[in-house]
C-alpha cells in the first residue's frame, strides 16, 4: 500500500516538477512569475487531443513530440505578444506578471469559446494499465510519466550546463545586462527560454491529459507546480525539481492517511497551500533559493 502510494506520488510529483521547471526558468532570467504557463500546458494537452483523437489518429510518441513543439511555440508567441515590449521598456516585473494573468484568462476563454467546456479523454498508452507487485497495484502510466519526466529534465540540465546558449541562460539569471553587453542577443535567448519552458509544459499537459482529462481549466493544476517551485526556491532549477517531487509525494501520502474517522484526502489542497503559507513565513527563499545578496 505504501509502495503504491509512493509510486503515485513520484509520478504526480515528477509532472509537477516538469511544470515547476518552466516557472523557474522564466523566473530566473526575467524575475517574474509566468502565470500564463498553465494555459500553455492546457493548450499542449489540447494539441495532443487533436492529434490523437479528434482530427488525426496519431500514435502516442509522434503526438507527444508535436504537442511539446506546439506548446513551446505557443509559449514563444505569448512572450512576443505579451512580454517583449514590456521587457524592452524595462517595466517592473509586476507588470509582466499582470500581463501573464491576462494571457492565461484570455487563452482559457478562447478554449471555452471554440472547443467548448467538454471533458475529453486521451487514449491510454497501455491497454493493461496496472500490474501487481505482491499486494501493491502499480500503474504503468505512473511509472512511464515518472521515467519520461526524469529524462526530459535530465536533457534540460544537459542543455543548461553544456551548451553555449545554456551557459548564457545561467549567466543571464545572474546579470542579464552584462550578458547582453557580451554580444548575446537577449531576444533570442528569451525565445529559447520560452521554447524550453513551453515544451516541458506541453509534455506535462499530455501526461495530465492521459492520467485525468483534457478540459479548459486543467491548467489550474500549475498552481500546485508553482507551490513546488516556491518550496524549492523560485528561480532555482534543482529547487523546482525537488520541490515538485516533494509536493507530489507529500500530497499522495496525505491522501491515503486516515486519522480516526477523518480521511485527510479531503484536505489535500488545504495541506498544499498550508505548506506554501508556512514556507513563505519561515523561509521565503525556499529550500535552494538564492539568498538576497547585497551587491557592491
Amino acid at each position: 500500500m505504501i509502495f503504491q502510494t509512493i509510486i503515485t506520488g513520484l509520478s504526480i510529483g515528477s509532472i509537477y516538477a516538469l511544470m515547476a521547471v518552466g516557472y523557474s526558468l522564466v523566473f530566473s532570467v526575467l524575475n517574474f512569475s509566468n502565470f500564463a504557463h498553465g494555459a500553455v500546458i492546457t493548450l499542449g494537452a489540447y494539441i495532443a487531443w487533436a492529434l490523437m483523437v479528434s482530427v488525426f489518429k496519431m500514435s502516442f510518441f509522434p503526438a507527444l513530440l508535436l504537442s511539446m513543439l506546439g506548446a513551446g511555440i505557443i509559449a514563444f508567441f505569448v512572450e512576443r505578444i505579451a512580454y517583449s515590449t514590456l521587457r524592452h521598456r524595462r517595466a517592473p516585473s509586476l507588470f509582466l506578471m499582470i500581463s501573464a494573468m491576462g494571457v492565461a484568462i484570455a487563452l482559457q476563454n478562447v478554449l471555452y469559446a471554440t472547443v467548448g467546456a467538454n471533458l475529453y479523454a486521451l487514449p491510454p498508452i497501455f491497454t493493461q494499465d496496472t500490474f501487481s507487485i505482491g499486494a501493491a497495484t502499480i500503474s504503468r502510466m505512473d511509472i512511464f510519466a515518472f521515467v519520461f519526466s526524469v529524462i526530459a529534465i535530465a536533457l534540460l540540465t544537459i542543455v543548461l550546463n553544456y551548451t553555449k546558449v545554456g551557459t548564457a541562460i545561467r549567466a543571464a539569471s545572474y546579470d542579464s545586462e552584462m550578458v547582453s553587453v557580451l554580444g548575446v542577443n537577449l531576444d533570442v535567448l528569451v525565445a529559447v527560454l520560452f521554447l524550453l519552458a513551453g515544451s516541458l509544459g506541453g509534455m506535462a499537459g499530455v501526461f495530465m491529459g492521459i492520467k485525468y482529462m483534457v478540459y479548459p481549466s486543467m491548467g489550474w493544476i500549475t498552481n500546485k507546480a508553482y507551490i513546488g517551485a516556491v518550496i524549492g526556491g523560485l528561480g532555482s532549477l534543482p529547487g523546482a525539481i525537488v520541490g515538485g517531487i516533494l509536493l507530489g509525494l507529500l500530497e499522495s501520502l496525505v491522501s491515503v492517511t486516515v486519522i480516526g474517522s477523518v480521511h485527510l484526502s479531503t484536505f489535500r489542497d488545504v495541506f498544499s497551500f498550508g505548506i506554501l503559507v508556512l514556507l513563505l513565513v519561515f523561509r521565503p527563499t525556499g529550500l535552494f533559493g538564492r539568498h538576497v545578496e547585497e551587491k557592491l
Binding site: 551557459t167 548564457a168 545561467r170 545572474y174 557580451l182
Partner: peptide
C-alpha cells in the same frame, strides 16, 4: 558571473 566557472565566464 559568480555562478559560472572561470572557463565559462571566459567562453561567455
Amino acid at each position: 558571473f559568480p555562478n559560472l566557472t572561470v572557463r565559462e565566464n571566459l567562453m561567455m
